[in-house]
Write a protein that binds this DNA or RNA. Structure first.
Lengths: 263, 263
DNA sequence: CGTACCTTTGATAGAGTTCAAGAACGGTGG
DNA sequence: CCACCGTTCTTGAACTCTATCAAAGGTACG
């Protein structure tokens, strides 16, 4: 029942279109306990997942790829710093955060991850993971043993995914390095919006799965600043906020907030 | 003549050990104009370069890998945002910065790159580069056509390099997201020091190849703050600074500067 | 040898943090 | 159904760190 990212909310909050975001397999009344077999060829996420860009390729190839599924409950971790690396994980449904922790206890949220995104690549280099990945809601992942990445196409897809991750990181550095608080939050909202759209959900209305604290950590701001900015954006009719429920009213307005010259 | 990262400086500044940092090939009087053939098997950088970790593997394998070399003069770019992706580049000698530029002109230095490091992986995802990479001194790279990464070992090495890059980015996010100015600069100096050591240079004495402005951009600080902190670190006998020439006097002191509890 | 760039240092101001307190929400159990 | 609890969110006020503005000194390179 957690296949839809916005679980128990009024109709208005449901995705306007959801061609992708349901499980490929029929969902039985009782959720499967932990590991199920899943076939890429029938997975509705295939257009945004690891083999993204493979639509034009032989489906036959995809059909052969079968992964184990794993459920992670809200608050539990997919993996932790120091745990051994064996597999990559594709998020099937749900929402994760990744974070790194400093010796003195400070931590930094390094990313939020939704359906179709790939996790675990930090472990390839040292054979053990360098971050914690924690489910922000009950979630489902496909386990992709690293050793199974045998076909050239799939390997190239992995390269693409990793490369995009590097590019995403550049964006975060830009955000943390040069942007002011309001620009960061605007960029954050627009990014979330884009990613929801890519998954067939409404671009202008969604439910934040993370706390103000987690947003703040990710954006390099205090939770109070995040809260204040949400209120200010609302005053300026850019968005509406009710706790974790966000409506974006003025996408161009948010966008213009990100270029400095025109205040 | 630019093989040594510290070109024209007093003896004290020269690397204390330099088992790695000279060209594998005999250097002819006049520097080669642009492209030369280079063999990994005889390259003195092989222990820190793309095939790092391959020491224990067949050298025979390495010997077959031959790359084209390319010279980039100070101030020139290895590639630019939007330029097509074909190859990865391994830095043989010299020093680079990478940066991304926002529409409104602001830019962010996203990394500094020295001998043995691999550049260009940002281009794999979209088949075009997403950043500018600019030489901070006359430099030398090996051109590694992406299509040549054919052996399983080499591919795995690429995965490792990319993964480590992702982990490095996590570190930068931690830096930009949670650290204060002094912590950032301390972390920066310690990181540089470590990387020099890995290449056989002195850990406590080196020549900065970048300006205060570039350091500031990388660390999310203004150049004035960087300059002030250098001066303060000097007052506190942690380092000595003379323009771009740095001596680290107290590594533990710098390290303790990075944990917040003990002020 | 002069010019352009880089660096240092001071004074001021502003953005965002921190501390604090109260309000809203969500779940639990009586 | 309501009261209760912990967690999350909001808002205010004071303070701090860092940016910005400004000017002078140094260095390097043509």
């Amino acid at each position: 029942m957690n296949a839809v990212p916005v679980p128990a909310l009024p109709n208005a909050l449901r995705p306007k279109a959801m061609p992708i975001a349901r499980h490929g397999e029929p969902q039985h009344g009782a959720a499967p306990v932990s590991s199920v077999q899943t076939r890429c060829g029938t997975c509705n996420l295939r257009e945004v997942c690891l083999p993204c860009g493979m639509q034009q390729l032989d489906m036959a190839l995809l059909d052969e790829v079968v992964y184990t599924r794993k459920r992670i409950k809200r608050g539990e971790s997919l993996y932790r710093l120091g745990s051994g690396f064996e597999s990559l994980y594709a998020v099937r449904s749900g929402f994760f955060k990744s974070r790194v922790v400093l010796e003195d206890g400070r931590d930094q949220v390094t990313g939020f991850h939704m359906a179709g995104e790939v996790l675990g690549m930090d472990g390839i280099g040292t054979n053990s993971h360098t971050a914690d990945v924690i489910a922000l809601e009950d979630s489902d992942v496909c386990v992709i043993p690293y050793s199974h990445l045998e076909t050239p196409r799939l390997r190239h897809q992995l390269h693409k995914v990793m490369s995009r991750e590097l590019v995403r990181d550049q964006g975060v550095m830009m955000l943390l390095g040069t942007m002011r608080a309001e620009e960061r939050l605007a960029a954050f909202l627009l990014n979330l919006s884009q990613r929801f759209v890519a998954r067939g959900y409404a671009c202008d209305e969604f439910h934040l799965r993370m706390t103000r604290d987690e947003i703040g950590s990710y954006l390099g701001l205090s939770l109070e600043t995040v809260s204040r900015l949400f209120s200010r954006f609302q005053d300026e009719d850019l968005i509406t906020v009710q706790q974790k429920h966000i409506c974006i009213l003025d996408i161009p307005g948010l966008r213009s907030m990100m270029s400095r010259d025109q205040d």
